[in-house]
């Protein structure tokens, strides 16, 4: 399973929301969103509305996979 951790602060809530809308499961581990999926996790940047500084620093941790795309269009984590 692929897991993406994002700290729950106001700037980041849209990242978890957009990931959930794209089909990922979103839970919590302490103050972190735990975004999980059996396959890839994909987050569309424009849908999040995040400005660049927020977008490029929103990832707190990745388990069971690796980031294969993190650019102006999307964040994608593929299973290991």
């Amino acid at each position: 399973m692929t897991a993406l951790y994002v700290l729950d602060v106001p700037e980041n809530t849209a990242v978890a929301k957009v990931a959930a809308e794209a089909g990922a499961a979103v839970g919590k581990v302490g103050p972190y969103f735990e975004i999980t999926a059996d396959g890839p996790i994909v987050v569309d940047r424009r849908a999040t509305g995040c400005r660049h500084a927020v977008w490029y620093s929103c990832v707190a941790g990745v388990a069971g996979g690796r980031i294969v795309q993190h650019d102006k269009d999307a964040l994608r984590v593929d299973p290991a």
């Binding site: 897991a3 951790y5 581990v29 302490g30 103050p31 707190a60 941790g61 990745v62 388990a63 980031i67």
Partner: peptide, 19 residues
């Protein structure tokens, strides 16, 4: 950076839940 995010994910699981 990839190794850091992998290690940090482990620390989140170990330590953040009870925070």
């Amino acid at each position: 950076f990839g190794k850091l995010l992998a290690r940090k994910a482990e620390l989140i699981v170990e330590r953040a839940a009870d925070w």
